[in-house]
Design a protein around this nucleic acid. Sequence first.
DNA 1: CTATGTAAACAAC
DNA 2: GTTGTTTACATAG
Length: 773
Amino acid sequence: MKTSPRRPLILKRRRVPLPVQNAPGETSGEEPKRPPAQQEPGQAQASKEAAESNSCKFPAGIKIINHPTMPNTQVVAIPNNANIQSIITALTAKGKESGSTGPNKFILISCGGAPTHPPGPQPQAQTSNDPKRTEVVTETLGSKPAARDVNLPRPPEALPGQRWESCAGSEAAGCTLDNSLTNIQWLGKMSSDGLGPSNIKQEMEGKENRHLEQSQVKVEETPGASASWQDSASERPPYSYMAMIQFAINSTERKRMTLKDIYTWIEDHFPYFKHIAKPGWKNSIRHNLSLHDMFVRETSANGKVSFWTIHPSANRYLTLDQVFKQQQKRPNPELRRNVTIKSELPLGARRKMKPLLPRVSSYLVPIQFPVNQSLVLQPSVKMPLPLAASLMSSELARHSKRVRIAPKVSGSCSPLRRDTSQLKALGLLLVLLAEEGVAPLPATGPLQEDKLPLGEGLSPLLPVQSIKEEEPQPGEETLHLGRPIKVESPPLEEWPSPCPSIKEESSHSWEDSSHSPTPRPKRSYSGLKSPARCVSEMLVIKRREGREMSRSRRKQHLLPPCLDEPEPELLFSQGPGASQRATELTLPTESSEPASRLGYSQEEGGPFKTPIKETLPISSTPSKSVLPATPESWRLTPPAKVGGLEFSPVHHPQAAFGPLPDALGLTDFSTTPLKSIPLFDSPRELLSSEPFDLTSDPFSTSSPSDMEVPKPDSPGPEAASLSANRSLTEGLVLDTMNDSLSKILLDISFPGLEEDPLGPDSINWAQFIPELR
DNA sequence: CTATGTAAACAAC
DNA sequence: GTTGTTTACATAG
């Protein structure tokens, strides 16, 4: 093919010395650390039970009281072990009967068990019993337990460069990831079924996968399925180079890898490249590294070693493992099909690489959600917004789930809506999750499955790719942080916003736009360290001027050598990539760095967060629109785009996503999460599933303003802030008038006990529902 | 047209 | 020779 004579001459390129950056210690690849555990969940039991749905009668232990201040609203305290589904059904029927005149809104809260968790860490109390939980949840749970078997021996051969990915240091992060991954369905496409049952894969993959598999029973259950292309070395893996590179890089703790290690990792994990592929594949790897902005080259302090990293905002932290896992979970015929096809087809006939990656649109990345609608809080509420916001985000991030609910009774399934008004009465706040999603979310049909969300196509896999951003828009949002941030950033003009094209993912776009300002000459370094930092500056950059780039795909990196943080590593505690993330998170500017704090946000958001594709707000294509916000995200947020949304959390509920372009970040967040969010099979899941970790959340009572910028610091406060006589708990609001079920976060105070934080208005719930205490 | 894969020309080490 | 960049082109969708 080539021969084109025309290749332009390259004038000279010179490498700029990057400032030093890294911590001295790194060497390539090494990082011997291993992660402790992966998180896998183990659970498998996911069977949904559902069984119970029928009974309409309220089980014993349920307490129903009229809301003291809200008309037509009753508060239903449900024992943890009760069948929510049936309760909802019954309540719905009741509400319907009453019509507008009677109680038609029910605030469901769990009592008796544990749900609330004020200060203490209590992760999921409720859930534990629930067999139903969604997988996601489960996984989460699993991860929690720190323990896990984790240790799988790693293959000896492991290269130095490789690390087992995993969540190494950061479980949380890892976990998070997993969760999100879980959501992702891209894998689905790949089915493995076809493949023999080999377990081979494990061999190949070794590390990562093993953990999973072993730990997970689920997988095993489906014996036939496993393997996949991995088994056969001869088959080309269904992943694009971009994806593989990401897998490789993300498999290390530091999320960076030398070129050589990348080669090695790929060869080790995908024998095809070792044995079958033409040598040119390495060229392709290099080409991809250079081409995509998401891959950022960093130089070691001494300048001798170059590491390839993934821009934090673009990094979804996907790992082969995760992907693999997914695939196992849901085998997808299509994929299989691909595989088959390939083999069948004459080589010549089939394209070379077929679809390596499924492209999906959405990535799961949850991230923050739009504050917009979701939160509905009213100012009046006592709860600090920030808190709420943080909760939301965290929650979402974690598992965002959406409820689909609909009381069966009503039959309709409207999504949930939130009404806040009422809620507030509770005294709380609320939030909710997801609701909005509704709208945007496309169809749901598919949802059912597991998690689902996204449609079938869901997920995309590789995130990376998706990332693109488009040029135009400034708006992105950012947020990855999870929190709503507001940034003021300049409008990003340059930044591409996500929106643009919807396509699914355009990968490079991200890249392109983002950087490229100038021709390469530089990457600049200006001192930026990590990309994050760069951001600010970067922002400045324009995306390429218009089209110049268009044709060429080149990326221009800017890579700042990151000096950055010398040792980012620590961060891991939270998430993978934490280190990086941290950086990014931080706002460019500097000051606040909220990010860090939000651990969760990061985690979740973090990893996922951004990269996401953004949906384009604009264009938003509904369905997929998910573009990764990626790049930009870190950059700044573009308020502009956002439209009215400011990021302030509080705002406009009304903004709901619909109209907004939300594009940016918000959208992303919102949408993305949504997609990824599984619907619950049952309300119970909703309720129980996610307990917030208050502990981790940042709630401090900071003022709303804080929300915007979360403060990184104070980590602990959050929970602390809640006074003893207050507790946060999740609840559901069933509105039979709308047939909606919304999840809310309740801040319950018991005035009687001590001072009432909430103020006089607050209701003394304890008196009604002692169990809440 | 976009995303991806390939090949290749160069440059800098 | 390796690592990186960047172009060109092919091809599937």
